[in-house]
Nucleic acid binder design. Structure first.
Lengths: 183, 183
DNA sequence: TTGATAGCGAACAACTTGTTCCGTAATCAG
DNA sequence: CTGATTACGGAACAAGTTGTTCGCTATCAA
């Protein structure tokens, strides 16, 4: 890809996430993004059809990265292998890697929650897929566990992350364990 | 209150909910509401500061009504007293009382979910408040159970309500029962 | 009946979005 | 290095949206 394209694309992403940490998605105008990214109007629309497309691309980039690191935790030197994938994910989130945490705040009407929940669903399939109790519809269980994790993160955020990732993981595991077949 | 005021206020609510059943909140313009409600521009802004205020008022009206009927089920002739409050709520929702279901669809970015979740939290407090296990933070449990109910409803909607309220309630109870102290 | 108030319509400024045109500058291929 | 290609920027644009103001009429409550 042309070096120029890559640079402006990243400048726009950076500007957008920066603005998102300060205000609601719907309150952000394209003009503000242009000013923050120091990019021409024409250029912006050459890269993204609309603001919504920008959002979509950003989410794909961001949450794809989140779960990729979660699954590839072997290559990460920040936790023992016996740790839960979810604990690992929380630890990464706490560092507010790439500003993901800001996007999940209640300010942003849950716009990003669906993306996040989707990614976590894949994670749940991978981690718990073989341990789901057969008493309930499988798709219900998967979405329930994924949604519970996302909601747990939001609860953590609402309390301003005062609790430790270990405590939070314990809560999450406590409410989901009963749904799994013991190994 | 002046008869005229009441009539236009209701006309606007009606128009707004009607539009919400057809399209996304963010795609609806004030002009469309005016046309649908057959109300002057000046009049609209005399009643509601902005479209967001209209949304807030509508939610208060709607979800307040939902839980009010849920709690006052004694006065309702549509179910036995031994039924779960949640089953009762689902039955009401299935009739799409006042278009509440449309608002909870995934089209509307979860704008209404927070209102709904808030109402359900009160419900959970009332119904399960004395049966919550002491092993976990109380506020975590309450929000978890409320969020689980809301998410269960969304799952039901995503499947186009093909399952019966009884089945759905069974799912919800199955994943929440383990968190309660037996009576 | 009468004074108060709600509604209407038209026009308004300010802002936002997405497009077009054209000159400039960076990049890439040969 | 050179020439063709491509991205960028700036200005201007139409179309649409928001929220306000003005004067007039219809309705209400007492």
């Amino acid at each position: 890809m042309d070096r120029r394209q890559k640079k402006t694309r990243e400048a726009i992403f950076r500007a957008f996430t920066s603005l998102l940490s300060k205000k609601n998605y719907h309150q952000i105008t394209v003009q503000e993004i242009l000013d923050e990214a120091d990019v021409g109007r024409t250029t912006f629309y050459a890269h993204f059809e609309t603001k919504e497309y920008l959002l979509r691309d950003l989410c794909a980039d961001l949450f794809g990265h989140v779960t990729a690191t979660a699954l590839g935790q072997a290559s990460c030197a920040c936790g023992g292998a016996e740790d839960s994938v979810f604990l690992h994910l929380l630890r990464h989130l706490r560092q507010n890697d790439r500003g993901v945490l800001d996007l999940l705040s209640s300010e942003n009407d849950g716009l990003f929650l669906d993306y996040f929940r989707g990614e976590v669903s894949c994670l749940v399939e991978g981690v718990y897929g073989h341990r789901l109790t057969a008493d309930l519809p499988r798709d219900y269980l998967v979405q329930h566990i994924a949604a519970t994790f996302v909601q747990t993160v939001r609860w953590w955020l609402a309390g301003e992350c005062t609790r430790t990732p270990e405590e939070v993981t314990a809560c999450f595991l406590a409410v989901t364990e009963p749904l799994l077949i013991a190994v």
